[in-house]
Design a protein around this nucleic acid. Structure first.
Length: 511
RNA sequence: GCGGAAGUAGCUCAUCCGGUAGAGCGACAGCCUUCCAAGCUGUAGGUGGCGGGUUCGAGUCCCGUCUUCCGCUCCA
């Protein structure tokens, strides 16, 4: 992979120019942090999905796949903690650039008032000695009463403003109270904004009476709520896993870096259900397995590293990222988390349904522990694309831009190129095309010089080019050109299918 | 969100101090050519991101807005 500041820009430009990634709604000036996959991008993305799915589901007897809906019962997100944890009013100090939760600022202010009251009380206690009647003092001392009434008024107004979703009044309150940023001392605040991680929409055709539902911010909950369904109908025995690929939505405040952080994105997740006490063993197992998976695609080892989390989320007792060295640095690509029994436990509590597993060996029931592997499909796409993108200077001094994609992931596996249109070469090319197209994604091109067509295929990462020349008409042989080396060999038409299948197969990548 | 930069043809860019936009590549059609882009001919493609303002006249100056990139901030 190339490095440097310009490379990322080049990759983005290449992704657009060759039909991999377009900005969403581009003709309307685009929609921020939303992207569309074009003709080649969707093919590459599907191939990544396919490889992941096969690696997780097809190659593991004890892992099955599901496809849960994006809409889920609103209580799911209460149980998961998403509703409470990510619904905060935020405000920024313009001078220090420091971001605060508006509710915390106000509550801190109120806490200070209470401190004042308590100091007042303590002072009085010393002054009056044993005869001090605290209750009486609190109810009658003018300063205490004033502060308490002020605190109560503030909280009342704050709660009312929040209930009415009147964020302007929350800001007004902060300004009236002259709350200053603790870092800069500045009172120069931005507007208060509600940070809603989750997108919401209404279910039901009439807006009144319709219930609010969320677009899921992660796919995992679709697996958890189906845990019992799958376990029972699939007669699954612990340990077992449920995999899923699907869209998720997060209303990121700052979404950037191309498809690295998008508002609509796709996750490939597998939740592995294990016996309590064995979760760390499986956590270590999946960390290694997932790293092997990345390396199986031929991506260089030095571009990956583990990053263990020191600070754990509320649901986890161990967590690590697999980071990839993107053109803009090492960033999270995949997460492996030991989620304990937090999710199933929470759903058991909220739903009132028993989400347990009866272990015939020990003759006891328990809520399984969960080890999660969760990879961002779009990030994987970007990792592969940025790793594959290369600008080469050839021996003759000419340049070529090539995507050295793993052959099994390439949008087109093979391009069929008659050397010339005339002399029946085009017709022969069509025959070859018809022979191959049911087994492989094939491109066919007969326009322009052969060299130019090779370069076009290089630019979209087609690993093999079949060229039909005059000799083909005589002995039914063609040349097959390898993308990375540009070397050619002559093979019989009847062997093309086998050769391409062998060289682009997944099996080649499995150890 | 804050600060900086940018936005002109599909792509990369030009257009002097304001005078109604051009090139290369690419695309398309044809010619030539028996193996690694840039031979020949022709054609299409732009209300200069969008909206206002100043001006006789704005791609050019001013304001707003959208989008992208970079830095900071944030990120279950």
């Amino acid at each position: 992979m190339l490095k440097g500041d310009d490379v990322f820009k080049k990759i983005i430009a290449h992704a657009k120019e060759y039909g991999f990634i377009f900005q969403s709604s581009e003709i309307y000036d685009g929609l921020s942090a939303v992207y569309d996959y074009g003709q080649n991008g969707s093919a590459l993305k599907n191939n990544i999905k396919d490889y992941w799915w096969k690696s997780m589901v097809q190659f593991h007897e004890n892992i099955v796949g599901i496809d849960a809906a994006i809409f889920m019962h609103p209580t799911v997100w209460k149980a998961s903690g998403h509703v409470d944890a990510f619904n905060d009013p935020l405000i920024d100090n313009k001078d220090s650039k420091k971001r605060y939760r508006a509710d915390v600022l106000i509550e801190d202010y109120v806490a200070k008032l209470e401190e004042k009251i308590n100091k007042e009380v303590e002072k009085a206690r010393k002054r009056f000695g044993d005869s001090f009647d605290e209750k009486m003092f609190r109810e009658t001392n003018p300063r205490v009463v004033a502060n308490r009434e002020k605190a109560e008024a503030i909280m009342k107004r704050f709660v009312a403003a929040m209930d009415a979703e009147n964020l302007a009044d929350v800001k007004a309150l902060i300004e009236e109270l002259e709350i200053a940023c603790s870092m800069s001392g500045s009172k120069n605040w931005t507007d208060v904004r509600q940070f809603n991680l989750m997108f919401n929409t209404s279910m039901g055709s009439l807006s009144e009476g319709a219930s609010q539902v969320y677009l899921r911010p992660e796919t995992a909950q679709g697996i958890f709520v189906n845990y019992l369904n799958v376990q029972k109908t699939g007669r699954m025995k612990i340990p077992f896993g449920i995999a899923q690929i699907g869209k998720a939505f997060r209303n990121e405040i700052v979404a950037r870096q191309f498809i690295f952080r998008m508002r609509e994105f796709e996750q490939m997740e597998m939740q592995f259900f294990v016996k309590p006490g064995e979760e760390i063993k499986w956590y270590e197992y999946w960390k290694e397995e997932r790293m092997k998976w990345h390396l199986s695609m031929g991506l260089p080892q030095e571009m990956f590293r583990f990053h263990d989390h020191d600070k754990l989320a509320h649901y986890a007792n161990a967590a690590a990222d697999i980071q990839f060295e993107f053109p803009f640095g090492f960033k999270e690509l995949e997460g492996i988390h030991s989620r304990t029994d937090f999710d199933l436990g929470a759903h058991q509590k909220y739903s009132g349904k028993k989400l347990q597993y009866f272990d015939p060996e020990t003759n006891e029931s328990y809520v399984p522990y969960v080890v999660e592997t969760s990879i961002g499909l779009d990030r994987m796409f970007l990792a592969i694309l940025s790793q594959a993108f290369n600008e080469e200077t050839l021996e003759d001094g000419s340049q070529r831009v090539v995507l050295n994609l793993p052959p099994m992931l390439a949008p087109y596996k093979v391009a069929v190129l008659p050397l010339m249109k005339k002399d029946g070469l085009a017709e022969k090319g069509r025959e070859v095309m018809d022979m191959l197209k049911y087994d492989f994604m094939c491109a066919y091109e007969e326009k322009d010089a052969i060299g130019r067509r090779y370069r076009r295929q290089d630019a979209i990462g087609t690993p093999y080019c079949i060229t039909i020349d005059h000799q083909t008409l005589e002995d039914n042989t063609v040349t097959i050109r390898e993308r990375d080396t540009m070397e050619q060999e002559r093979i019989h038409i009847n062997d093309i299918k086998g050769v391409v299948a062998q060289r682009t197969s997944i099996v080649k990548n499995i150890h």
